[in-house]
Amino acid sequence: MRVNWKPFVLTLVVLLTLFPFVYLVLLSLASQWRFPALLPGYFGLDNWRTIWASEVGLVSSFLLSTLISLSVATVSTLSGFLISRSVAYHPRKRLLTLFTYFPYLLAPVVLAACLSYFFLKLGLFGNVTGVIVAQFMITFPYSLIFFSSFWSERTKSFEELVFTLGGTRRQAFVKVLLPLARGMLLICFFQTFLISWFEYGLTSIIGVGKVQTLTIKVFLFIKEANFYYGALSCCLLIFPPVVLLYLNKKYVFNKLV
């Protein structure tokens, strides 16, 4: 008789998927875990209690990351939505779209390195505004490409219909275009939020260590070999997206292909 292996493999896949989350939480609760012990010397809430202390600065990093990512996501989603319209209805649409692919594909960290001269000249080096502007430069192309599929002939017909029914440009936008794009706006906001939330290289270069977002903190802890705080900051980094994913999972992938 043949053994049905599928349930075992599936269980393994699920366990592997959940493993990092569980392991990072457990590690964030541990300390004094020296080689070759299988279990840590201490296991409890100590690390989590100390993050409230100011010298670790994790709470302020969390708030800073939230502020930066919310700003970047809001600005790039809205500007991408509005500006992609001009691109999509332009006769040379293909050429313009190709231009958006260049910064989209280039490693953000390399873009940042080549732009750091200009950021320095503009006084945007080593401050939060600079990091927001720099991150916006990489999320904007994403948002543009994302919305290019929204501005179809059908969308144009909807707009024209509102005009012939006596509506103004503003009414067409508020009453029809925005509601039609609602799902896409939500996904784009989520995706650009994630790009910003997870961004490390570009932030480290434009922020020069002065703008300490969560990803920068994780790096610092790895460098200091402080793995317990490292795991703790990893937890802060991955659980907000998990919650967001849970909230709008049904939207996230429908528009990807």
């Binding site: 059908r154 017909s157 024209e160 219909l161 005009f163 012939t164 029914l165 029809v176 039609l180 609602r182």
Partner: peptide, 19 residues
């Protein structure tokens, strides 16, 4: 402008607002 003409153009597609 189209909105001042009181002329309504109907497409072959019904184009009902899905929301």
């Amino acid at each position: 402008s189209p909105s001042d003409r009181h002329i309504v153009y109907l497409y072959q597609e019904d184009l009902l607002f899905p929301h």
